[in-house]
Nucleic acid binder design. Structure first.
Length: 863
DNA sequence: CGGATCGAC
DNA sequence: CTATGTCGATCCG
């Protein structure tokens, strides 16, 4: 009872194994034992650049583990007990919400690519084969696996393991076709099924099962496909000819091996209908039917898992592969039994690194994961330990969410060393061209371009740049990418940049909403002003970036932008890292030549823009290279000199929002100093809370801030509630940032100062939180900002939920700090609760963690 | 946001 | 000789 997996309500079939065994003997291949395999791999690997890099990565992981262990040492039993209590409260809640009512199926084609290749070329059937190339294999068949030949292994090493290995090149077109055939079957059982790549899919058959109960037998009867070969391959005569003569062991033969499928049924004994099978109405029967139909249609076998959620389904589809299925009955105990001794590595989402880290804590199985839940909640980020908890309880999604819109698109290529700038640029252009094509196919435009480089030592670097207007055309992308590339080339000059891979990615697509509004928005407003080249406004991307983000993105996103922008604007005296950048920027030689030689439009754009700049407010051309002058001019415009224009902008709420969003940038530019020893928020022009400090209700407070802000900006007051909420956040942010900037103004601009964000003066500053109106004694702006974040979220959530009390506290500050999650990432889900308590809980842990990294100690987050 | 890392197929 | 390509998520600064 205890150790036994009673998961297999369905009979688990061994027919396949028998068949494999036969094949073994016939072919006379024994494969290799693990030791031999490892030795061969090591011999082939040792000393390579690749291996050196692997060692390096390994070291990094070990360091992470080391840090974690140090953190663990400092945990007191007190803290552990407290954590235990908290986590267990959550466990109760999770347990109460456990949902076992769905039936999720995970279908997994067995050794898909290899199986397809074997099907289409019977000569390969008895041989060990792999699909891929000498440098990388995608999959291997079961013969080859006995030699240790696995997916993600380079072909040349596989050859050493198994000299007879046949490597078949990839043929995605073919796999796609087969995949489509399979999907045609799957969709009958769940119109919303979720394909994962070409060879896997999740189905929610809950509804199908209900309907099926009333189905007559005939609807559940399926026929053996005796002539599948000729039918299937009508487009390939040669192929079918091969099948017919070459001892094509057609599906029925395969099927006979599968005792499980046959025995449970009326079998062939049911002579009423020749060559047919009737499937029952249970989940197992449904899945057998699916697998049967897949095999009849494609001559390929699939494995499957049936369970109450996707995670379990996926894990148990592994149990009886190949060509088998497994079910976890929808009972809590069955689920827990299944997990009991299951190695965590089997869990989707837990990979090599996580496995190793958990192993360092003595956690190998899922039940151990549960036992250590308290400890894990102290050592890992909230997202991580909650995930661990879900895993150890056997919880997962019970419904299939169709994947949302695409977030990025990319293309990358590996090649033998390329080290001349010229080649690198043309390669870059080529990648941009390919990517542009793909983007346009889906009609996508993105604002962020990322360059990825892997040097010959396998070290990977990515460099990204976000621009004002969305890009999709080759030239647009290349214009950004070449800048990034140029910077990298220069960064190693005078040495050549020696790379083995280059990739380009575009992300930051407009959402549907944004697309709708884009034309009215500031962006197009600006763009229409003159030239798209505004996006390459020089020098320093900070300006246009800043502008972009404030006009187009959520208030949240603007936080960092402001910071960075402020930094760059302030950075006359540069920190070491900035110095490098600057140097690169000005010392561009090696790449500059090439860039200039490339007589593409983009360059012209740049040079034009540097001289003529159209003010987005008054529309007048400003011919100045001095950004400060330009900004001053814009400030003046915005400050009301040209009211008519701003009214025009404000025609709709959305525009207002955008306007508000980018306004703070100009404020920052002007550096309205606000820092005073105390009460600076209340005392400044920016602070709306000045009018009435006695206001205690936070939402009221916020609203007031908004209205005052609006007043200042001379916006009409007919904002919708939604817009108001958005503005509200923005207002607070601008306030926080101004403080930040101000601080940096005052102090040395060393990187150290910035990263630690400490006040120079040792005496405690007192800031007044604009939301809760309480004094915050703090030594760090970061912590103050965090407090405001938390307050803000609290206020918003309260507003949304009408002060509803939530039973569990899942969203607390100490977690946020310790887990390294910003409050921004938490507290986003009202249903997750907002009550905050026990602020002292793990503060000391948090402090220790931080102080071990820096010389200072962050004192308090709350007084 | 930008960069690195993890994980999955 | 010879260690992929693409994507999403998360964490940190």
């Amino acid at each position: 009872m205890d150790n036994m997996k009673k998961v297999s309500n369905s009979s688990c079939n061994d027919g396949v194994l028998l068949r494999m065994g036969l094949n073994d003997n016939k072919a006379g291949m024994q494969g290799l034992d693990k030791e031999k395999i490892n030795k061969i791999i090591m011999d082939a690997t040792k000393g390579s650049r690749f291996y050196e890099n692997e060692l390096k990565k390994d070291k990094q992981v070990n360091q992470r583990i080391e840090k974690m262990m140090q953190l663990k040492e400092k945990i007191t039993t007190q803290q552990l007990l407290k954590a235990q209590l908290q986590v267990d409260k959550l466990v109760i809640e999770l347990e109460q919400n456990r949902n076992l009512s769905s039936t999720i199926v995970h279908i997994d084609m067995d050794a898909f690519y290899a199986a397809v290749e074997m099907r289409d070329n019977p000569e390969l059937k008895e041989k060990p084969i792999a699909v891929g190339s000498m440098s990388m294999l995608s999959t291997s068949n079961y013969h080859a696996r006995r030699f240790g030949v696995r997916a993600a292994m380079p072909g040349f090493i596989a050859k050493k393991l198994c000299p007879h290995l046949t490597i078949v090149p990839l043929n995605f077109e073919k796999y796609g076709k087969v995949s489509k055939e399979v999907r045609e079957i799957l969709i009958e059982y769940d119109p919303n099924f979720m394909p994962m790549g070409l060879d896997e899919a999740y189905l929610n058959i809950t509804e199908h099962l209900e309907e099926r109960l009333n189905w007559p037998e005939d609807k559940r009867r399926f026929f053996f496909n005796t002539q599948s070969a000729t039918e299937k391959d009508k487009d390939d005569i040669n192929m079918s000819a091969k099948f017919n003569e070459g001892g094509y062991s057609s599906s029925p033969v395969l099927f006979e091996d599968n005792t499980a499928l046959m025995d449970d049924h009326s079998k062939q004994g049911d002579k009423s209908v020749e060559n047919s099978v009737v499937f029952g109405t249970s989940a197992e029967e449904v899945v057998k039917e699916i697998r049967f139909r897949i095999e009849q249609k494609t001559q390929l076998t699939a494995s499957a898992g049936i369970a109450p959620n996707t995670m379990l389904a996926k894990m148990c589809s592994d149990c009886n592969k190949p060509n088998g299925q497994c079910r976890i009955a929808p009972e809590r105990q069955t689920v827990l039994d299944f997990l009991k001794d299951l190695p965590i590595r089997k869990v989707p989402g837990i990979g090599k690194v996580t496995e190793k880290m958990l192993k360092a804590l003595g956690i190998v199985t899922c039940s151990e994961l549960y036992q250590q839940r308290a400890l894990l909640s102290l050592l890992f980020s909230e997202a991580s330990w909650r995930n661990f908890l879900d895993i150890s309880l056997g919880l997962g999604s019970t419904h299939l969410e169709k994947d949302g819109e695409r977030k990025s698109m990319s293309t990358e290529r590996t090649f033998s060393e390329i080290n001349t700038a010229e080649d690198q640029y043309s390669l870059c252009r080529e990648l941009c061209r390919d990517l542009a094509q793909d983007l346009q196919k889906e009609g996508l435009k993105g604002k962020t371009v990322t360059l990825k480089l892997k040097n010959v030592n396998f070290e990977v670097k990515t460099r990204a740049s976000t621009v004002l207007s969305s890009v999709s055309a080759e030239e647009e992308i290349f214009a950004v990418a070449k800048e990034l590339l140029g910077t990298e080339i220069d960064s190693v000059a005078p040495h050549p940049l020696r790379i083995r891979l280059m990739g380009i990615r575009v992300s930051g697509f407009l959402s549907e909403e944004e697309k709708k509004y884009q034309q009215k928005s500031i962006t197009s407003f600006l763009k229409s002003g003159k030239e798209t080249g505004f996006l390459r406004l020089q020098p320093g991307k900070s300006n246009q970036e800043y502008f972009t983000k404030h006009s187009e993105e959520s208030p949240r996103g603007s936080f960092f932008d402001k910071k960075r922008a402020a930094r760059q604007l302030n950075s006359e005296n540069l920190s070491p890292s900035d110095t490098v950048d600057k140097q690169l920027f000005h010392d561009r030689k090696s790449s500059a030549n090439f860039v200039e030689e490339s007589k593409k439009v983009t360059d012209l754009q740049i040079s034009n823009v540097c001289e003529i700049f159209t003010c987005p407010v008054c529309f007048e051309g400003q011919s100045s290279n001095n950004l400060e002058d330009l900004n001053r001019h814009i400030d003046e415009c915005l400050n009301g000199t040209f009211v008519k224009d701003s009214v025009q902008i404000s025609k709709n709420d959305n525009s207002i929002e955008n306007t508000l969003n980018f306004l703070p940038r100009f404020k920052n530019e002007n550096v309205e100093c606000q820092k005073k020893k105390t009460d600076h928020l209340a005392g400044t022009d920016q602070s709306a809370s000045t009018s009435d400090n006695s206001t205690s209700n936070s939402t009221e407070k916020i609203t007031q801030i908004i209205s005052d802000k609006r007043h200042r900006e001379r916006q009409p007051s007919n904002l919708s509630d939604i817009a108001r909420n958005l503005c509200m956040k923005q207002c607070l942010f601008s306030k926080r940032i101004s403080q930040d900037n101000n601080h940096f103004e005052k102090t040395e601009h060393t990187e150290a100062t910035r990263s630690s964000c400490f006040f120079e003066d040792k005496e405690d500053s007192v800031l007044v939180c604009p939301v809760c109106n309480s004094e915050q004694k703090t030594t760090s702006l970061v912590s103050f900002n965090r407090h405001v974040d938390v307050c803000l979220n609290k206020g918003l959530i309260q507003e949304l939920t009408e002060k509803k009390d939530f039973p569990t506290k899942t969203c607390n500050v100490e977690n946020s700090n310790r887990a390294g999650l910003s409050s921004r990432q938490q507290c986003t889900n009202p249903s997750q609760g907002t009550k905050r308590s026990g602020l002292t809980t793990s503060q000391s842990i948090s402090k220790k963690a931080k102080s071990s990294n820096s010389k200072h100690t962050i004192e308090m987050f709350f007084k």
